[in-house]
Design a protein around this nucleic acid. Structure first.
Lengths: 204, 204
DNA sequence: TCCATTCTGTATCGATCGATACTGAAGTAG
DNA sequence: CTACTTCAGTATCGATCGATACAGAATGGA
């Protein structure tokens, strides 16, 4: 069921990928239509708007794409079968590896692509903040699950533990851009895991 | 030795403060000349440029002002008399208190005011990154000092410990903007301090 | 008084922002 | 072939960006 009409003269999927890299590196506002069109192979403004609707619509689509590709390192936070401690540590290690990979922009699109938004572009900041808060909630539930299983002491403040790991995770983006290496960040992850107290062995 | 010429019709110091709040909240690029002039009491563009030179020069001045006012919470990192562990913990607690204080924009100007910069404004990103890297180095030296004094085990990876606390510190800004409260962040600080291993008591 | 100096407001600069109007080209369906 | 649909390129829109030209007003020094 091929559609009628003139076929698109460029690869929409590749163009979306190029847009993701630009938004990732520069953020929403500094990425201009000219930069986007150029990165998409020098397409015309007409082609751009026909394919993506608007800069805002493109950004929303890019965020969704990021979430299911590079951003999927946080998917494991929704796992309910693996040990919670392993879930969080794996998520942090995958985040470190991904954000220091030089095959794409350093850092994290969700954490950094809409930090500086004018009042007319608050939607972008809110889209990304919602993603980050969802990750915090997922970490929080993992800690609660570890308390329920008895591996974490019952008097542990799950919210505080989640705040610690969530704060560390969003900090990785800035540290990576400031030059922190994957190796050093991995070691920092190892140290951070020690903050999550373990229940004493049961006497039996 | 009063200067000759017509006196300035507005408070330059108050105007600089207003500019700091705008850059703090929105970042360098989204803060427009119109916003700045308005916040400075509706001064004319001529007055603005006569007083501050350019938007870039104003930003550099704002960063310096932030550093000696709200940003001074990190000054303690240069202290060489207090116990290093106390230095780092105090810095983190002061950062949390400052960044969650609603009497000014949430978060940290140094960490967040130049995250999204176009290629023509990279100077802003570099100015702030240099500040952050200096803070990392200061933390690193504190850890080394604690090793030298014997309070931290000699086989400790000082760089990894510094990366952990530096990463957590820059993460506070994002967490605070995402809604984390001072209380929860303070508890997270307490947990994080447990990552810094302590030398076993000497047998004597 | 007269000048030099410094700050003032108005009007506007060229460049760029995101977005569109209009016309033509390239495909399918009948 | 014609009709219809979809995408293409050129030219340009109004708004806003940071920054300036110009002439006038307010001060101190001589």
């Amino acid at each position: 069921m091929a559609r009628t009409g003139r076929p698109r003269g460029f690869d929409r999927d590749a163009a979306l990928d190029a847009a993701m890299h630009l938004f990732w590196e520069h953020g929403f506002e500094p990425t201009t239509l000219n930069m986007l069109k150029e990165a998409m192979g020098g397409i015309s403004p007409t082609s751009f708007y026909a394919a993506f609707g608007s800069k805002e619509a493109l950004f929303r689509e890019v965020v969704e794409r990021y979430r299911v590709t590079h951003g999927s390192v946080t998917d494991i936070l929704r796992d309910e079968s693996l040990p919670p401690r392993e879930v969080v540590e794996t998520c942090l290690r995958r985040s470190v590896a991904m954000q220091t990979d030089v095959s794409h922009p350093i850092g994290c699109l969700v954490t950094q692509a809409a930090t500086n938004c004018g009042p007319e572009n608050q939607f972008a900041a809110e889209v990304l903040s919602a993603e980050r808060r969802a990750n915090f909630e997922a970490i929080f539930k993992q800690v609660e699950r570890d308390i329920a299983s008895g591996h974490t002491p019952p008097d542990t403040d799950a919210h505080a533990v989640a705040t610690l790991f969530s704060t560390f995770m969003v900090g990785i983006a800035t540290s990576a851009r400031d030059g922190a290496s994957r190796e050093e960040l991995e070691k920092a992850v190892s140290l951070a895991m020690a903050s999550w107290s373990v229940s004493p062995p049961t006497e039996q």
